[in-house]
Each structure stands twice: as structure tokens, then as C-alpha cells.
């Protein structure tokens, strides 16, 4: 539901940019930062305010990998699958994490909305492969067990949000 808080938040984001289509990606990024995903009602509101059809906004939101139309977890674990990480075995890390959190390719966020696990393209830290990025912090030369340990830390609340 479109709440007045949401209107206010989205208005603030739109007002930070020019009210034309070239700003739409930045605006969506702003909304995603705020809510950790793109709520449908927020996008419909953007569509009304900016006079861009909601199908177009939906098309843009589904094109770019960084946007999510589903709520994401409080902590986001990104496993790099660039060439270097792939060669140095990033896949077993993903498998182990998914097992640990009972997730799968189609189900990337835990039910309690604590953790989202996703495979991402090259993070540019190839020399330290394989790398894992948790809430923006890169962890180098990871293994399945080191990553599992990291998850346990998150679960125990030892990894603060702004880490």
C-alpha cells in the first residue's frame, strides 16, 4: 500500500534529480537503497509523478540486475563469479551457503528477511579470488567454511549493519 511516508520518501528522492526520464535509473537506485527493493506501489507513484508509463518503469527495473522487485534481506552476501573467482572455485562457496541457509537459485532470501545470497559478476578484486562481498565489504580468498563462519556471525548479530 502506498503510505504517506512512502510518498514523502519517494518525493524526496525524485526531487534530488531532474524530473525527466534520464534520471529514472538514479531514482530507482535511490528507492532501492531506501527499501532494499523496489516496491510496486512506489514505482506506480513514480510513474504518475514523472509521466512515464509504469510498464516502461517495470521494463527498466527488470532489465538491470541490481534492481529487485522482491524484498531483499537485511544483509546481502554477493559471491563473485568473475573469471578469476570462477577458476578459483566460487561455485562451492555458493553451494555451501545455500545449503547453510536452505536457499536455492529461485529462493535467494531467507524467510526471516535476514540474508540474501546472490551470485554477481566480477567485483574487480580478481587478485584476491575468490571473493565474497557482504554488505559492501569485500572478503578475500574465501572458502566454503570461511563463508559459513561469516554467516554464523551475521546470525549472531556480530556483523553490524554499517560494517
Amino acid at each position: 500500500m502506498l503510505t504517506s511516508e512512502m510518498i514523502e520518501t519517494v518525493d524526496t528522492i525524485i526531487n534530488e534529480h531532474d524530473n525527466n526520464q534520464s534520471s529514472i535509473i538514479s531514482i530507482l537506485q535511490g528507492i532501492q537503497r531506501e527499501y532494499r527493493y523496489l516496491p510496486e506501489e512506489a514505482l506506480n507513484y513514480v510513474s504518475d509523478r514523472m509521466d512515464i508509463s509504469s510498464s516502461k518503469i517495470y521494463g527498466i527495473a527488470t532489465f538491470y540486475e541490481n534492481f529487485s522487485l522482491e524484498p531483499k534481506g537485511k544483509h546481502i552476501i554477493k559471491i563473485c563469479d568473475g573469471t578469476a573467482c570462477h577458476i578459483r572455485k566460487s561455485q562451492p562457496i555458493l553451494d555451501a551457503l545455500r545449503k547453510e541457509l536452505s536457499l536455492s537459485e529461485d529462493r535467494i532470501t531467507t524467510d526471516d528477511l535476514l540474508i540474501t545470497v546472490e551470485m554477481v559478476s566480477c567485483l574487480g578484486a580478481c587478485s584476491l579470488a575468490p571473493v565474497v562481498n557482504v554488505d559492501g565489504v569485500v572478503y578475500a580468498k574465501m572458502t566454503p567454511s570461511k563463508t559459513q563462519a561469516l554467516v554464523r556471525k551475521i546470525k549472531e548479530g556480530q556483523l553490524s549493519e554499517d560494517n
Partner: peptide, 10 residues
């Protein structure tokens, strides 16, 4: 000028 349809995903 309706824009009811759009390409989605990729």
C-alpha cells in the same frame, strides 16, 4: 502513446 506493453527482463 499508451505504453501498456513493455519489454521486460533480458
Amino acid at each position: 502513446g499508451v505504453g501498456a506493453l513493455s519489454f521486460t527482463h533480458r
